[in-house]
Design a protein around this nucleic acid. Structure first.
Length: 429
DNA sequence: AAAACGGGGAA
DNA sequence: TTCCCAGTTTT
């Protein structure tokens, strides 16, 4: 027997050992999760989309609320998009929610409301890529398809001592091939879940619990003592900082007790979510990066941004700072309290009426007078996305109205904080 | 192939 | 703090 054949045989034994003992371990250790209580392909699908880049404990309450509100593919397909986004509020990666509803409509119209069980059909659903297609096909339909995510790549890279960069596409493809070979006959559903369960409970990124691991004795990385240095993954570049000025506009007159919110454009960052209006802060004088913008300069910039956006409000004073971290950007928001200008109570200035009308019926007519000083640099959406016709709708809301609009977490916290403050001011006089 | 796209929990 | 996770889509 050649050396090559001996290695191949050892490798084969390692694979069989892995599959057998992992499956056995899973029978005893699997967690009781809401989407594991039924073999409902719709539930599996929803859970898999929610679980993308999101931990189980975070997903559970969202999953329960979601299937209560949208119990079937058809109910999801027929729902208003705002309700779907509201159900997703706080989960992040909101394109997942919008793609999911798009796909629900695909399933309703193309597959009679039944989640398809063939590879091409599943893969063709919006928001379903290589991992999720494999997960749905294997977990819901027991098809022998690999479901390889970062977790599975971590387990496999350690057990088989694979030092390829898992951030590279070809590495994932190789892992899929390997994962497919490992699936025991007729056990795709349990085995794929077992692989992910092991990654979640035992073979964790930082401090793997090797002693209770069911496959430790043949784990190549463990035997080589290098389990904590795997998998190899090129690290993402750090997010870029962005200083922004936000307006918390307090209503007057018929808007008393309410604040103004604005809807984001249909594409790009936080698409179609609601927020406090905000714009990039101009660089501070003196050039020192991160230097605080003088209050007067901030108020002036905010005044012009508000006017440019057609929002009749006067910045008053700094309220608080808030930070919001995305994977690629870090926003530092300096939030200023602003006061709505009640144009009806003012002398009849034409420009004020025009701006006010623009707020009452957004998109209808010109959004305020172009101010010579403003027309140079301030965009309606300084993210560089969208257009004045897309997004930019505004509403005056109180705390109760928040239930009708989906907000990114940072604005959810700011608004709740603000209304809490208002309530305590009421009580204390 | 690289960047865009949220948020929170663990170490 | 830093890392990184049950990824997909767009560029």
């Amino acid at each position: 027997m050649t050396t090559h054949e001996q290695q191949g045989k050892a490798q084969q034994e390692a694979k069989l050992f892995f599959s057998r003992f992992l499956l056995e371990w899973y029978q005893g250790q699997k967690r009781d999760l809401p989407w594991r209580r039924h073999r409902n392909p719709y539930y599996i699908w929803i859970s898999e989309i929610m679980l993308q880049q999101t931990r189980v404990d975070t997903v559970i309450p969202y999953f329960n609320r979601f299937i209560e509100r949208f119990p079937t593919v058809e109910s999801l397909a027929d729902a208003p998009e705002e309700e779907v986004l509201k159900c997703w509020e706080g989960l992040g990666y909101y394109s997942r929610a919008r793609n999911l509803q798009h796909a629900a409509r695909q399933v309703k119209e193309q597959y009679g409301g039944q989640v398809p069980d063939d590879r091409d059909a599943v893969f063709g659903l919006k928001g379903v890529g290589p991992y999720t297609a494999g997960a749905i096909l294997s977990i819901a339909f027991n098809r022998p398809e690999p479901a390889v995510d970062g977790n599975v790549m971590r387990v496999l890279s350690r057990y088989f001592l694979i030092e390829d960069d898992i951030a590279k596409g070809p590495t994932r493809v190789a892992m899929e091939r390997l994962a497919a070979e490992l699936i025991p006959e007729g056990e795709a559903s349990h085995f794929n879940q077992a692989l992910m369960e092991l990654g979640a409970l035992v073979c964790t990124p930082k401090s793997p619990r090797c002693l209770p691991c069911p496959v430790m004795e043949h784990c190549a990385a463990r035997l080589a003592g290098c389990e904590t240095s795997l998998p190899v993954k090129t690290k993402a570049k750090p997010p870029r900082p962005e200083e922004r000025l936000a307006a918390l506009v307090e209503g007057c007159g018929e808007h008393a007790g309410r604040v103004l919110i604005r809807q984001r454009p249909s594409s790009g960052l936080l698409a179609r979510m609601w927020e406090l209006p905000h714009w990039p802060a101009p660089p501070a004088e003196g050039g020192a990066a991160g230097a605080l913008l003088p209050e007067a300069a901030a108020l002036d910039r905010l005044r012009r941004s508000l006017r440019q956006a057609g929002i009749p409000a006067r910045p008053a004073e700094h309220w608080m700072a808030a930070e919001h971290t995305f994977s690629h950007i870090v926003w530092t928001l300096q939030v200023y309290r602003c006061r709505e200008e009640d144009v009806r109570a003012l002398p009849l200035a034409a420009e004020g009426r025009t701006a006010y009308a623009a707020v009452l019926s957004p998109g209808a007519g010109d959004a305020g007078l172009p101010d010579a000083a403003d027309s140079v640099s301030v965009e309606p959406f300084a993210d560089g996305t969208g257009s004045p016709e897309d997004g930019g709708a505004v509403r005056w809301i109180n705390r109760e109205d928040m239930a009708n609009y989906a907000f990114p977490n940072v604005f959810l916290k700011l608004l709740n904080h603000y209304f809490d403050e208002q309530d305590s001011n009421q009580v204390n006089g």
